[in-house]
Design a binder for these strands. Structure first.
Length: 607
DNA sequence: GTGAAGGGCCAC
DNA sequence: AAACGTGGCCCTTCAC
């Protein structure tokens, strides 16, 4: 495919090039960089294309000689980025990129927008992400990949050569082949978008795609912002846990060695305490009736009778803490900022939930000892907000069950209110057990819990569990009906949807009861979990628009929680903006039940 | 050495 | 004994 492209290396040509593209509504957009990390490398090329006319801007020519190859320098902004941000000659380019009326089509736009935000100093307005669109269309089905070459192959039937992607983008002179490759990646985007849009329309995914596209910039900024972690505090906590792990490990070693073969008593054979096989063997030799697995919930009942089991559980907890939440997390602190810049995958699950890695900031233990290490730097505050029982409110809204809705309106203690309804008593007469049953049912019901699982988690007999479930669903008949409908409809439709239209396709074998059951539980859960994700993403965009030009910065999200850092003096106004954004987003999808946002301001990421 | 699978466990 | 949904990370084990 022949394309026309122009390499832009001076201010005059840039102004002219941007003028040519200014009246176009959609532009293919791509960047080439010397690194994957915007804090470590340089932004070399920005490519914009209307499909026929492609401009390749060489930013090395605009850096005023500040093209440092050094990376990882302390200090947030590299000399090269500083020079580019300060260069007024780049204003026409920034205007094009910022203009929300001109849609920028990029593949995995989070990457490109991060580089533009950090190195050119502006946000990208009007994002269309072909990567996210492709994932929405696939809807979790199959093993399809979503790289640009894969998407081009699948939707256009053409082969895209990505060989130059990993070439040297820092070189003084770029090769013709590199520039052609760069131009092609931008030039092809309008065509890819056109094909994707056809499927988006027929699959009814336009609304959810808009939510996703509008969420890209907030997430890009969040990753650039990073979350501040107090290294000293983290190390102190790690030291405490390590001491416990060592002591428990020594004691466990001693207890277990009583069960190994005679020879090892003299041979000082060490049991690998992290080896399930070795530990299980030793426990069996000690006469412990080891269940099929050695998971904590299986071993717990044996802990009273067998001190070695109690010690194993103690060791496991400390090992998990020091291994998963230890020194390794400190290695993710970026030297340039002193902060943790985790990787958030915007559609991490087919339900629409985010996934987070390197490190996963969504699985930091809830205990204050860990959370309090994540904090606001001096002069700053954290504003922490989460949706209260958002999934249950969504279920109440979807089903329209009046009793369930009333429980939300009734009082401050939702679980006590449901217990009162289920057991037909006054709220003040609800026993601790009854409240506990109601609470566990409230949580379990959105996952499609069954009687046997409920029995085992509560200690009720199978019969009692069945009776309690029956009472629960009799109290909330329309909720029962909604869940049954979800389970029935999936058999024909083989997909489920959220309030925004987000879709999850399902493959199951109708002759395999296990796979049908799994699909039916998923069909109950996905619309609820996924609508919660829709709402959070919508809130992130509203928040993004409301805190622009303030000191507030998004620093973390955990499914139904948003953490914002801001100047101490702006904590009050930031909290108001955050709460309002979350409320409005919730109200867009939930109307029959009030949306409740719990919000507070603190120095540390704690309750 | 590397990578996948399995078991286990952290979050919501 | 996991038929309660979604993830990621750590360790061991085992194959290549």
């Amino acid at each position: 495919m022949e394309i026309y492209f122009q390499l832009v290396t001076d201010a005059e040509a840039l102004k002219k090039a941007c003028d040519e593209l200014r009246n176009v509504r959609t532009l293919g957009f791509d960047v080439e960089t010397t690194d994957l990390d915007p804090y470590r490398g340089n932004l070399r090329l920005v490519q914009l294309s209307d499909g026929r006319n492609t401009k390749v801007v060489d930013l090395r020519a605009f850096a005023g000689g500040h093209w440092s190859v050094a990376s990882g320098q302390p200090g947030e902004i590299s000399e090269t980025a500083k020079a580019l941000r300060a260069n007024a000659d780049l204003e026409p380019l920034r205007e094009l990129l910022t203009n929300p009326k001109i849609t920028k089509i990029a593949h995995n736009a989070k990457f490109d927008t991060k580089w533009v935000r950090h190195h050119l100093g502006c946000e990208v307005g009007g994002v269309y992400d072909t990567y996210l669109a492709s994932i929405l269309i696939a809807a979790g089905e199959g093993e399809r990949r979503h790289g640009l070459a894969d998407v081009v192959q699948f939707f256009l039937g053409r082969t895209l050569d990505k060989a130059e992607q990993v070439s040297d983008w820092g070189a003084a002179e770029l090769s013709q082949s590199q520039i052609e490759y760069a131009a092609m990646d931008a030039a092809i985007m309008p065509e890819v978008k056109a094909k994707l849009d056809e499927r988006i329309a027929t699959d009814g995914l336009a609304d959810v795609l808009r939510i996703e596209n509008e969420c890209v910039m907030p997430i890009a900024e969040m990753e650039l912002n990073g979350f501040y972690l107090d290294t000293e505090r983290w190390r102190e906590q790690l030291e405490k846990v390590s001491v416990i792990q060592r002591r428990a490990g020594d004691e466990l070693q001693h207890l277990l060695s009583a069960g190994v073969a005679q020879a090892s008593l003299f041979g000082q054979t060490q049991i690998n305490l992290d080896s399930i096989e070795q530990v299980t063997d030793a426990l069996v030799n000690l006469g412990v009736p080891v269940p099929n697995s050695t998971r904590a919930w299986e071993l717990q009942p044996l802990a009273d009778e067998y001190p070695v089991v109690a010690k194993l559980l103690e060791y496991r907890a400390a090992a998990k803490a020091s291994q998963s939440f230890g020194e390794n997390i400190l290695e993710f602190i970026e030297p340039a900022t002193g902060r943790i810049h985790a990787d958030f995958r915007q559609i991490g699950a087919p339900t629409g939930r985010f996934a987070c890695s390197k490190p996963n900031l969504q699985q930091i233990p809830h205990e204050a000892e860990y959370r309090r290490c994540f904090m606001a730097p001096p002069g700053r505050k954290l504003v922490i907000a989460d949706y209260s029982q958002i999934e249950l409110r969504i279920l109440a809204d979807f089903s329209g069950d009046q009793n369930f809705i009333d429980a939300f309106v009734a009082g401050s203690d939702f679980h006590a209110a449901t217990a009162a309804q289920v057991f037909g008593i006054k709220a003040e007469d609800v026993s601790a057990d009854q409240r506990s049953f109601a609470k566990r049912l409230n949580f379990g019901v959105v996952y499609g819990i069954g009687a046997s699982r409920f029995a085992s988690m509560t200690g009720l007999t199978q019969r009692q569990a069945e009776e309690t479930l029956r009472r629960y669903f009799a109290t909330y008949p329309k909720m029962d009906e909604w869940l049954r409908n979800a389970a029935r409809n999936v058999l024909n439709e083989r997909s489920a949807r959220t309030a925004s239209g987000r879709m999850a396709r399902m493959n199951f074998d109708p002759n395999d009861r296990g796979s049908v059951g799994a699909a039916q539980r998923y069909a109950k859960n996905m619309p609820i979990q996924g609508t919660s994700a829709d709402i959070l993403k919508r809130a992130l965009r509203l928040l993004h628009d409301d805190i622009r030009d303030t000191s507030a910065r998004l620093v973390n999200i955990v499914h139904d929680e948003i953490v914002v850092e801001c100047d101490a003096a702006e904590a009050g106004s930031t909290a108001a903006k955050l709460e309002s954004a979350m409320q409005r987003a919730g109200s867009e999808y939930v109307s029959k039940v009030p949306i409740k946002v719990d919000i507070h301001t603190a120095d540390e990421w704690t309750k």
